[in-house]
């Protein structure tokens, strides 16, 4: 069974169609990279997976639960789907450990000690244990993004969504974040990653999805995508970003 099953979703902002009949599946343990030019709908698509962006047609089924179904308890579903954003979105008024424990206690109902222990363990894992009592504004972008990944992992997610996790980072900080993501992928986490980091895609992705103008133009294995993209649009895109 697919962990994430995107079924023919379409979305409009007023008259303007941003997603057109998009379908794909992400199997358990699979890493899927979504790429494409800006404005192609990649971020919108990934935000449909946990219902952050509503869509008008189609459905997304995550671990057997329909996102479009009005009866679905969306907060409960989202608590199990980790998400990492371009601009980190740590909560600035909470300490780093506070960021890691708040949802564990308020959403999952874990005890304070258990949540803290889990939080410290994950901070250690991303190499930031020493910063537990600092505030987000006191960390670098790369550190903040690693905290954001740890924060998502603290909820014991069944899959992880990454929305351009390195696009807002200074070049020298990109790798520290990618390293954490590569490790996560190797451990078998199911991941859907919107990114332009083709090195990351080559290293850990199983499949690559290429989007353009709100449509999934290409959905292929990594080898097929980098070896011989079928669509002309994907060929152009690749030749542009792989030039240097």
């Amino acid at each position: 069974m697919s962990m994430i099953d995107i079924r023919n979703i379409s979305k409009w902002y007023g008259q303007f169609q941003v997603l057109t009949d998009c379908s794909t599946q992400v199997k358990q343990g699979e890493v899927v990279v979504v790429c494409g030019p800006s404005g192609s709908g990649k971020s919108t698509l990934i935000k449909c997976v946990n219902g952050l962006e509503p869509f008008q047609k189609g459905d997304v089924v995550v671990n057997g639960i329909s996102v479009a179904d009005a009866k679905t308890d969306l907060p409960k579903l989202r608590a199990r789907v980790g998400m990492v954003f371009q601009h980190f979105e740590l909560f600035p008024h909470m300490s780093i450990i506070g960021n890691l424990t708040i949802a564990q206690t308020k959403v999952l109902g874990r005890g304070a000690d258990e949540a803290r222990e889990r939080g410290i363990k994950l901070l250690d894992r991303v190499g930031l244990k020493a910063h537990a009592s600092k505030f987000p504004g006191e960390l670098s972008g790369g550190q903040q993004q690693r905290v954001a990944i740890a924060r998502a992992l603290a909820m014991d997610p069944i899959c992880m969504l990454f929305d351009e996790p390195t696009s807002a980072l200074d070049p020298e900080m990109i790798n520290e974040v990618l390293d954490v993501m590569v490790e996560l992928a190797k451990e078998g986490m199911t991941m859907m990653v919107v990114t332009h980091e083709m090195g990351f895609a080559r290293k850990v992705a199983h499949r690559v999805i290429f989007m353009d103008a709100g449509q999934i133009v290409e959905d292929a294995t990594k080898e097929a995508f980098f070896g011989q993209p079928r669509s002309e649009r994907a060929q152009q895109f690749l030749s542009k970003i792989l030039q240097h």
Binding site: F85, I102, K106
Partner: peptide, 26 residues
């Protein structure tokens, strides 16, 4: 930033919880 609300909802907070713990304190 609009992402604050999104991040909070994405973690499983309900909308009232999002206001209570994330948006209003800031």
């Amino acid at each position: 930033p609009r992402g604050q609300k999104m991040a909070s909802l994405a973690m499983g907070f309900t909308l009232p919880q999002t206001y209570r713990y994330v948006l209003l304190p800031m």
